[in-house]
């Protein structure tokens, strides 16, 4: 009797093993056949280009990520230098891989065009809502009296894929060593006061107010009043005042700093020695 029981168990094990082996084999064969039948040709060129890109997936190029940009470059829909973050090095590598000549790309960095700290810029109310500039924007355009002032709640800082932006004394500030110029902050800022300027720019206008001088004066102690002193002081014709706001043409600017010296409102800024300053050899810092 006992032997019979043992024999039955063997049979059960055998049946179970065989039927599961068969089931597994059928599924395995099916998958193997399917992988042959449903094979999708992969663009090997795009894969190699993806490996050359920085891989930050920041979206600064306008595509959903590095892989999407690589596909577009491979298909000829985007230029080899479309990656703003990789800079000239990446552009050259991709261009030589594709066998085309790279166009010259200028490395850019983001700059917040406002220096209205709470001590200098007046507020119209005290904001206690969600800590996000885009939310504050819904409430009368933010708490600052100036319609073009930095709200300082750090929407740009939270979106920055490189952690380069911090809020210092109520105004967003870009760490140049970390900034790769992808431009995500530029499109995030609800006030549109972040600009991309050439990486080695020595001066910039730290204000975005387009109001008349007298009106700007009531908003903020560091607002551009459109006095045109900078325009007259510039020997290279690089500064023009459009409306009531100075703007610098970086193609002409040589970074002499005369405008910054003359500006009566001290809003044309230069990096102070030792302060948050563009590194002279940016590639070494990366």
């Amino acid at each position: 009797m006992a032997a019979w029981v043992i024999y039955m168990d063997y049979m059960n094990i055998l049946i179970a093993t065989l039927s599961f082996a068969a089931l597994g084999a059928v599924i395995g064969l099916l998958l193997a056949a399917a992988s042959k039948a449903f094979a999708v040709p992969v663009d090997e060129k795009a894969e190699k280009i993806t490996a050359m890109l920085p891989g930050a997936n920041c979206g600064g190029c306008g595509y959903s990520g590095c892989a999407a940009l690589a596909e577009a470059i491979s298909a000829g829909r985007a230029k080899p230098g479309a990656c703003t973050v990789g800079g000239a090095e990446t552009a050259d590598a991709i261009a030589s891989f594709l066998g085309v000549k790279a166009e010259k790309t200028v490395r850019m960095r983001a700059q917040v065009m406002c220096c209205g700290t709470p001590a200098l810029a007046k507020k119209k109310y005290i904001y206690e809502g969600i800590a996000d500039c885009r939310a504050a924007m819904q409430l009368g355009g933010g708490d600052k009296l100036c319609p073009n002032g930095c709200i300082g709640l750090g929407s740009c800082a939270s979106r920055c894929p490189f952690g380069a932006i911090s809020i210092r004394d109520g105004v967003a500030e870009v760490d140049y060593l970390k900034c790769r110029g992808c431009g995500v902050c530029v499109s995030t800022c609800p006030k549109n006061i972040i600009r991309l300027i050439p990486y080695d720019s020595n001066v910039w206008v730290g204000c975005s107010s387009v109001e008349k001088g007298a009106v700007t004066r009531t908003y903020c102690d560091v607002g551009c009043i459109g006095c045109r002193i900078c325009e007259k002081s510039c020997e290279h014709g690089a500064i023009t005042v459009n409306g009531f706001l100075a703007s610098i043409d970086y193609d002409k600017c040589v970074g002499c700093g005369k405008c910054a010296e003359k500006c009566p409102r001290k809003i044309i800024r230069m990096p102070a020695p030792g302060e948050n300053k563009p590194d002279p050899s940016p590639e070494a810092a990366v």
């Binding site: 599924i27 395995g28 099916l30 998958l31 399917a34 992988s35 039948a37 449903f38 094979a39 999708v40």
Partner: peptide, 14 residues
């Protein structure tokens, strides 16, 4: 498990 693999390949193609 097998089915999901199969569906994935099928969808990728068609």
């Amino acid at each position: 498990a097998g089915l999901v693999q199969f569906i994935e390949m099928f969808l990728k193609k068609f």
